[in-house]
Each structure stands twice: as structure tokens, then as C-alpha cells.
Design a protein around this nucleic acid. Structure first.
Lengths: 184, 184
DNA sequence: CACCACATGTAACGCGTTACATGATTGT
DNA sequence: ACAATCATGTAACGCGTTACATGTGGTG
């Protein structure tokens, strides 16, 4: 269900073709929020058009079909945003799973992984902070526009990961018992 | 690929049957790291056993088959943990997507969603903090054992989300232009 | 005219979910 | 005896990925 609302939202920002939307996913949205390939986008656009949530506004060269969001599409998007996010049941986050399984490693290897985690998170914070400053300049807004909100979310998340990793390193360093012996 | 390592890791903690593992996912692991249903677990356990990464250690009543991790299984798990997490390409996070699409809402509705986000995150911080304290007591360790690391990760994450939401609320409150007009 | 980017489409496969299905053991 | 829980299995479906496939328009 998420894909269709991502598409409607992108078309609300500005109209575009399937090819264009695939690029927006690959270059911007996919790094923060949601990703999709053209093989999934084209059929979904046809369904959305059949349902009246988007409409064809131009047919250009090379079969290019430009879509735009309709009033019905905006209503549907708003309804989805306001309704409580359907509880998915369980989490499926490979990153967290790795952290959960860390105790399977020996103490030294666990520390290596944690230090890598911290370094990677700190690098992301720097990278996203740069991007945020550029967004502030580009939009002339302190919040960096709609994308700025999402970039800030990323900054907060990675900063939290880096802080957690530092805490975890202290815990493992202070625990000589950390890790397991092989079975059998 | 993640499921098999989650299973190996759980069996490393202690041996168990498919039914038992399904319960561990549903009651603990699924809330933090990874989830799986019995319909996916049973076939995967058979494959892991064929590959020698786990072994049958008991056959009990009601066809119960208890598996344990083998030395080969531990090696495979360690190799997977140490290798760099295969970059998935794009993110697919419905929560972040919703935040990204927030600008499609009017200013008031956006603020409502953000306040709900903040309240939900703050509640999670409280809930996980309680759990962490109980883990510290149960394990007699400041770090709360292996699960404690993951619970702390959750606390850090949700605290970051709550902080971000407070920042975002300030930004939207200070921006009378926030939101879009319907198209057409 | 060759090449690259544009532009769309289909097919096969993997992972995960829900629903359907079966039977054994324990407790009341 | 009945119900609840233990215990395992299969089938159909949805979403997403990779790979395969096809054709057009602009640029050097």
C-alpha cells in the first residue's frame, strides 16, 4: 500500500512520467523513505489512473506519459496519512538483527563491529548535516522545506545510533565474560 | 538471508523446536529485530539441517523436533556478522515515508500527526526503559545482557524520534506557508 | 550512423503473509 | 468428553527484485 502513496505524493510535488519518478526514487526518495524500480512503478501508475487517483496530463515522444495527481488522489493520500499506521506486527530490520546477534561473536570481533557501526553513523551525521545546510540555502527556509524535515530525521536517527554504539562499546569493554563458546 | 541467521542465533542461545522458535519471535525478537511465522520457520529449519548448520538433538512427543546450532552454524553466523551488511540499495521505511509526505497535509493536520508521533515515541521510551531495568535485575548486569544492548538501541532510537518531532513541530508552527493547495 | 539516454514493458524468482489443514497431548 | 495448547505442514497470494526485451530521439 505504501508505494501508491509515495507515487501520489511525488506527483503532488510535480507531475512526471514513470521514468521520471523512477529517477526521483533512485536519486532522492530512495535514500530516505521508500524505493521502487520502474518495473513496479509502471503497472502501479496504470492502476492509479484507472482508479482516478492520478491522471494523464501529457503524451510526448517515445511513448512518454506524464501523470499528475487528481483531487481524489490528494484526498486518498491525506486519508492514509491521517489514519493510524497499521501495526505491522513484528519488526524486520536487518541492522538491529545484527546488533541482537552480536553476542555470538567473540569480544574483540564484537568491539570491531561496534566501532564500525559508530564510525559509519558519525559519517552519516556529517553527510546529512551538509545536505541539510544546502537545503536551507536552496529553500531559504530554516526547516529546509519538506525534504528538510526528513533529512533532519535522518540526522537525529544516526546521531542516536552513534551514541548508542559508544555506550555499547563501554559495556562490552567492561564485561570480560562477553561472547559465547562454540557448541559441541 | 536474514532469517537463517536469526534462527541460528536463537538456537545458539538455546536449542529449540520450530514451535518454540516461533514463540520466541512472537514474544521477544519480533518486537525488536526480526519476525517470522511458523510457516516460514519449519521449511528453513529443514534446509539448515540439510546444510549441516543446525542439527536434530531430540525427537519428542507430537512430532516435536528440537534443533541445536552446530559448529558450522556458528561459523556461518560469525562470517555473516563480520561481513559488511550488503547495501540494500534504497530504504523502505513506511514511517519515514509518512513523514516525507507530511507536506501534503494542511498545517493543522500535519501538527496533529507530529504530536501523535512525539507522544507515541515518548511512550515507547518509557516502556523500553522499564523493560531495560527489569533486564538489568534479571541478568545482574548493567548492560542487561545481549538483549539489553538491543533494548537500549530501541530507547536511543525512540528518544531521537521524539526529539525530532518536537523540533519539527516548532518548524511547522513557525511556518504559516506550510502545506499545499489541492490541484486542478 | 553510432551511441547513449530516454522510455516502457514482461517474466521468473524470492521472501513473507494469511489462510487452510491435520493431528497429538494435557488438563478439567 | 471436551477444549486448549502443542506441533507441524501446505497453498495461494502480494510485494519487490533482477533479468530480459523492445523501441525512440538527440548528439557527436
Amino acid at each position: 500500500m505504501a508505494l501508491r502513496y509515495a507515487l501520489i505524493g511525488l506527483l503532488l510535488d510535480r507531475p512526471g512520467s514513470g521514468y521520471d519518478l523512477a529517477r526521483r526514487f533512485a536519486e532522492v526518495v530512495g535514500a530516505y523513505a521508500w524505493d521502487a524500480k520502474h518495473s513496479q512503478i509502471y503497472p502501479e501508475l496504470r492502476r492509479l489512473e484507472e482508479e482516478g487517483l492520478i491522471e494523464v496530463v501529457e503524451r510526448g515522444a517515445r511513448r512518454r506519459t506524464t501523470y499528475a495527481c487528481t483531487a481524489a488522489g490528494l484526498s486518498a493520500l491525506r486519508a492514509w496519512l491521517v489514519e493510524p499506521p497499521a501495526s505491522t506486527g513484528g519488526v524486520r530490520n536487518e541492522h538491529v538483527l545484527r546488533l541482537f546477534l552480536l553476542a555470538a561473536l567473540g569480544r574483540d570481533e564484537a568491539l570491531t563491529v561496534l566501532r564500525q557501526t559508530e564510525a559509519a553513523a558519525a559519517a552519516q551525521v556529517e553527510h546529512l548535516t551538509d545536505q541539510f545546510v544546502r537545503l536551507q540555502e536552496a529553500t531559504g527556509s530554516d526547516a529546509g522545506g519538506p525534504l528538510g524535515l526528513t533529512v533532519q530525521y535522518g540526522i537525529h536517527s544516526y546521531r542516536a545510533t552513534a551514541q548508542w554504539a559508544r555506550w555499547a562499546i563501554e559495556q562490552v569493554e567492561g564485561d570480560p565474560e562477553f561472547g559465547v563458546r562454540p557448541p559441541g
